[in-house]
Design a protein around this nucleic acid. Structure first.
Lengths: 224, 224
DNA sequence: TTCATGCTTCGATGGTAGCCGAAGCATTGT
DNA sequence: ACAATGCTTCGGCTACCATCGAAGCATGAA
């Protein structure tokens, strides 16, 4: 079973270290997990058999990376559940600052930036939140149309909600998911405000200088 | 860690059995997992501590359900990863007779029909539900008076609540109990929409053809 | 070749967690 | 009041698996 693979602390640490999409060698992962290379080798073999990671030989090194984004998404979901109960692992969240700052979660924005955006929308009453359910206010619709050229009919979907609160892996607070979350991320990309990192498999989102400014103007909290 | 909770085969079986959203008793979950009640109790306590499931006491039974959709979503993700590498689990289909459809629970309607009725009342805002407590809305009172000739003063009782959510035995979701639940069942009988099965001791409720139509007109969900 | 580095396999060990029998509460029914 | 049912707690047993030392393969460098 896949879950039992992730359940072991040593393996969980390895997977967490791989969450930024980069590949790491077996020794590096051993050090991350705080175990000897022999033990790590055993764990890595199991993770590979379970389809969670893929190896790539290079010289006498063996690089491992997460198989694909689906794995990362499931891991993020698990971390979200763990964060809810407060019983989170000692080693929490990503070490990579860039990954903490902004990253892709399925198809929407996550990380510090993503949380900040949802906060801003909420405090300015552009959305209304009741528990898990979020809906756009009339003000919010006007705001989206004016500044991002997003209109409600673009967001309609038979099964997916327009707005949804998604628990952020690193921040432990909610960011915005749903068709609106996806549409906004797409618009940021189209406007050349931000783009996924070029590194294959990376989930980091890099903001351009102007993108950062524009974003701050719309969703800034005055702190940066 | 959450993943280690899901990692254990016995617990995974329990969670899988709960994936359809219905609640199951501790003993039933024990049987699902193929373990003794003592062991199951230990597992269930851990799952509850991990925030994956929530208990609901009813009589001497203890029903467990998944905490919310987020849990189910993550479990689905895990199952998806597991399916990729090879084997997945298969579980249960319906196995019950027409007792599942409609039956008497004390003095009110239970079964698929009963659950459907409560759902309908809720989605149309004829009742307001906060956790276990339910109350009629003004719209609800008008609705009852107009279509079923039930007025609020008929429902007053010194000790019994007007509305109460009662966990359905077969559907494992709530149906409507309380004086209102009883009054509605009684009215259905008076209107010759439905009647208890003639067989002595049977709790099956048979709907007449016109009764079925009228009921569907009032509480139908368009699916039947 | 010879050595060094990186990783894997083998074997033994120990800690942890699942498991069940027996007994203890709690609730319900008679 | 008494018995029956459902669930939990306790104690001991067992099996599994993570862990590491030592040795065995690879690859690359001298």
């Amino acid at each position: 079973m896949v879950a039992s693979l992730v359940g072991d602390p040593a393996r969980a640490n390895m997977l967490t270290a791989l969450m930024n999409g980069r590949a790491l060698t077996a020794s590096e992962l051993a050090q991350e997990a705080g175990i000897t290379p022999q033990t790590a080798s055993s764990h890595l073999a199991k993770l590979e058999a379970g389809g969670l990671i893929e190896p790539e030989k290079q010289g006498r090194h063996r690089y491992y990376r997460l198989t694909d984004d689906d794995v990362a998404f499931v891991l993020e979901g698990l971390a979200g559940l763990a964060a809810r109960t407060g019983h989170m692992r000692v080693r929490t969240g990503p070490k990579d600052p860039a990954l903490r700052r902004a990253r892709i979660c399925y198809d929407h924005l996550a990380g510090d930036i993503g949380v900040q955006m949802l906060d801003s929308l909420r405090t300015r009453h552009l959305i209304r939140q009741k528990k898990q359910d979020i809906e756009l206010t009339p003000d919010g619709e006007r705001f989206l149309a004016k500044h991002l050229q997003i209109s409600p009919y673009m967001l309609a979907h038979p099964r997916r909600p327009v707005c949804k609160a998604c628990l952020d892996w690193s921040e432990r607070r909610h960011h915005l998911a749903g068709t609106l979350g996806a549409a906004m991320m797409q618009r940021f990309a189209e406007l050349k405000w931000a783009a996924r990192d070029a590194t294959p498999g990376s989930r980091v989102v890099n903001f351009t200088r102007t993108g950062e400014k524009q974003f701050a103007a719309l969703f800034g909290n005055g702190k940066d």
